[in-house]
Amino acid sequence: MKEFHGRVIAPGCVSAPALVSHGGLNTLASFQKALQFGDKKATCGDQNNPDLYGKPMAGKALCLPQTIGSTTGGLVLYCACSMHRQPACLLFSNPIDSLAAAGSVLAAVWLDNVSMPVIDCLGEEFLAYVKDGMTITIQENGVVRVD
């Protein structure tokens, strides 16, 4: 077990299995099937992300360096939350970009009964340590425990 400390963007407590990407998450390409075609598992559709492609993202602790892609990124995250197809949490090794932050914060503020805690600045050691399937637990103060 190892603990990491980051900056809380959207608060919350959760425990979920890790899903790790060492490349940036293209939110539109990744969530397109979930948003347009009703894929409730939010299977990653980004063929350019071999770490995530074809894997279900809903309910997972999505661990990544940053998001990439178009200006729709924030809206895509907000819509995934509104449709209850969001990851259990987003954990960034780097500082979050403004679009992903906007989508996460808007979902936290505007949507009732939806939770997607977001923590950034966890560091490169976090992304090097965590592996798919490990249990991630986020505590109220932003501490991320990896078991």
Rank of each mutant, 00 (worst) to 15 (best):
Lys2Val: 01
Phe4Leu: 02
Phe4Ile: 01
Phe4Met: 03
His5Glu: 00
Ala10Val: 12
Ala10Pro: 09
Pro11Tyr: 15
Gly12Asp: 08
Gly12Trp: 04
Val14Tyr: 13
Ala18Leu: 12
Ala18Thr: 09
Leu19Glu: 15
Leu25Ala: 07
Thr27Met: 15
Leu28Trp: 11
Ala29Glu: 14
Ser30His: 09
Gln32Phe: 05
Gln32Ala: 07
Lys33Leu: 15
Lys33Cys: 13
Gly38Pro: 11
Asp39Met: 03
Lys40Tyr: 06
Cys44His: 10
Asn49Trp: 12
Pro50Gly: 02
Asp51Ala: 05
Tyr53Thr: 00
Met57Arg: 06
Ala61Pro: 02
Leu62Trp: 03
Pro65Asp: 02
Pro65Cys: 02
Pro65Leu: 03
Gln66Tyr: 00
Gln66Ile: 00
Thr67Leu: 05
Gly69Phe: 07
Leu77Ser: 04
Leu77Trp: 08
Cys79Gln: 11
Ala80His: 02
Ala80Tyr: 02
His84Ile: 01
Gln86Ala: 13
Cys89Pro: 10
Cys89Arg: 08
Leu91Ala: 14
Leu91Tyr: 13
Ser93Lys: 06
Leu99Asp: 13
Ala100Trp: 07
Ala101Ile: 01
Ala108His: 12
Leu111Arg: 09
Asp112Ile: 06
Asn113Met: 07
Val114Gly: 02
Ser115Gln: 15
Ser115Ala: 15
Met116Glu: 10
Pro117Asn: 10
Val118Asp: 04
Ile119Leu: 10
Cys121Asn: 13
Glu125Val: 03
Leu127His: 08
Ala128Met: 07
Lys131Tyr: 00
Gly133Ala: 12
Thr135Ala: 12
Glu140Gly: 00
